[in-house]
Design a binder for these strands. Structure first.
Lengths: 350, 350
DNA sequence: TTGTACGCGTTATCAG
DNA sequence: CTGATAACGCGTACAA
């Protein structure tokens, strides 16, 4: 009887192995843990054979109780069904699994209360580390996390307080790259539809747009800079505003993909061609730019790598190889799907 | 010292609470576990106060070791970055969290070896239950799982052997509904682009198409029934084949969204209008039908509910309320985004 | 109604 | 090199 559902499958313990091999539990433990403690090769073989014979696996719970470790790592995101996160989760899980850890997934909807609650739960569960995609710029939870001593890596979001490891995508560089592409194609009057100013990614993207103009010595026209809400409606509304005010532009840069889709829609229904007439650029966080019509050139974010790298960093932290806290910036990449100059780029939009 | 990273935050144990409240550990245990064992109201209050005062939380590891339970549930999917799964994960996690469980996420890429390996890991970890989205029709792992006594619920896939609880979306009904809609609009020559015959969902969808024709007394034309690969290319190729052979049709039903997109593309580049000329129907598993141009009417799968329901069923199973193994079929819903008769429907495509 | 003491399976310390 | 044994924190017979 092992307490599992009435089934009476007797799972072998370290003691079973010990008696089967005719040694003590201590020796078995030393063997299975590759302890630096010397153990006679012959004995080791005997033990190993018994382990295999009984198909013994150490009880993770007991190990955890003893070592204060659970061999599990949490990934906390606002919402896994937001298309920005699944690839991150996949990257993180792949690396975790390779290192013998399992991934615990938590959704917070970006609600600070739920974020805090989850962090509490994880502490209770002796999670060995946390990958945290916070929603807001609020860093109090991080402080708490830090204080509790659980290694943590922040992903996809920037936080003012620099005392925590971070892995994110370079919004600034991405948008600079996208805007430069339009400029190289000859566009000079490029409208910008940004995101909410409260989000650092939105601010960074705008900065990238501005820098690109500067690079090409094009004076920025404030009347072409408007902002949306990272949703389709925002893009639609922004274009309508621009057209009502009779602004002239030959291209549009949108702060994310949904905004770009809204913009394209509004442009089209106003009778302007895409992309013969107007080039649209967005910053996409949803991997479906290829299926939009017309298919959009995309500055894709390396979300899988982001997850994988963050996990690797976290593991390093857990091994105490964390000499100093780092801030890792991944570069998004321009994926040209058509030559005419319409794009999408990507970033979390919640 | 609690073994966590050298931090010396002393986490209170049940003994701390006991001494703080001036009672024995047994009493504390009885209180925090709402044991049926009688305990004096006054004593209970004292204990509760101490618990709160010290912010005591039972050590999950120790509980687990003692009770053979981990308060965690695994969700095993082929690939979380396949857009069909994130909403399922979200639904499952929401329900799990409400019941005090955490969700462990695993990706198998549909590889039987990896599926098996993961199931092994989970057994070792004393996971309390498993939500399993197998890739193939292979049910050996399920047998193994079943044999190990871990409660399990199969999701999104059908499996021949009926001895396991299953929650899935009714592919047959969905496709019948979609096809009927086209028939009601007056279409009679409706091409069908199916999925790989090895997948039961593909077979079910074809069956739904056929039934709809029968419902309307339209004799099925075998030359209009072709098959794809659940990818964009398959849809494209299928349409080209049909047109090369000069088949006449006024509508297309595709077995999934990507196929439908390919079909639309091929139709358009052949100079046929969408949807004025041809109505396209797919079965979509990727929630972006709204962003395709023209936006597609969709028979959407209730993936969130699928995850939530499966988790609820699993919890019932774990509470041994599983009188008999059940097979729960969720109905997909037609979401009409345009009146003209172009659609997408959804299902897992891996 | 409350308390004592054992065991869950491991690991680490200390003697041999 | 090996073995006995004391924790780790909790739940629960059993005794009081």
């Amino acid at each position: 009887m092992n307490g599992r559902n009435g089934r009476t499958v007797s799972i072998p313990t370290i003691r079973d192995v010990a008696s089967h091999a005719g040694v003590s539990v201590a020796t078995v433990s030393r063997v299975v843990n590759n302890s630096l403690h010397k153990v006679h090769p012959a004995t080791r073989q005997r033990v190993l054979r018994s382990v295999h014979r009984l198909s013994y696996h150490p009880n993770v719970m007991a190990q955890g109780l003893r070592r204060g470790t659970s061999h599990s790592i949490a990934l906390i995101v606002p919402d896994i069904s937001n298309p920005f996160y699944p690839a991150i989760a996949r990257g993180a899980e792949d690396v975790a699994r390779q290192h013998g850890y399992v991934l615990v997934l938590g959704n917070t909807d970006g609600d600070p209360g739920r974020e805090r609650a989850y962090l509490d739960i994880l502490r209770k569960r002796w999670v060995d580390g946390v990958l945290f995609a916070s929603a807001g710029g609020d860093d109090r939870h991080l402080r708490a996390l830090r204080a509790s001593g659980v290694p943590a890596v922040l992903i996809a979001r920037d936080v003012a307080a620099g005392a925590v490891d971070t892995v994110l995508v370079d919004s600034y560089a991405g948008m600079r790259q996208a805007t430069s592409h339009l400029l190289r194609l000859g566009h000079r009057r490029i409208a910008y539809i940004g995101g909410p100013h409260s989000l650092s990614v939105a601010r960074e993207r705008l900065r990238g747009y501005r820098q690109a103009l500067r690079d090409f010595s094009v004076p920025p026209d404030p009347s072409l800079i408007t902002s949306g809400d990272f949703r389709v409606d925002g893009g639609r509304a922004a274009i309508r505003r621009l057209m009502e005010r009779r602004r002239l532009f030959t291209a549009v840069v949108a702060a994310n993909d949904l905004t770009a889709i809204g913009a394209m829609e509004a442009l089209r229904s106003a009778g302007r061609g895409i992309p013969d007439d107007v080039a649209v650029v967005g910053f996409d966080d949803i991997p479906f730019a290829a299926f939009v019509d017309p298919p959009l050139t995309t500055v894709a974010q390396p979300t899988y790598r982001l997850g994988a790298l963050a996990m690797e960093r976290l593991l390093a932290l857990m091994r105490e190889e964390a000499a100093t806290t780092r801030r890792i910036m991944l570069q998004p990449q321009l994926v040209v799907r058509r030559s005419c100059g319409a794009y999408l780029l990507a970033g979390p939009t919640s």
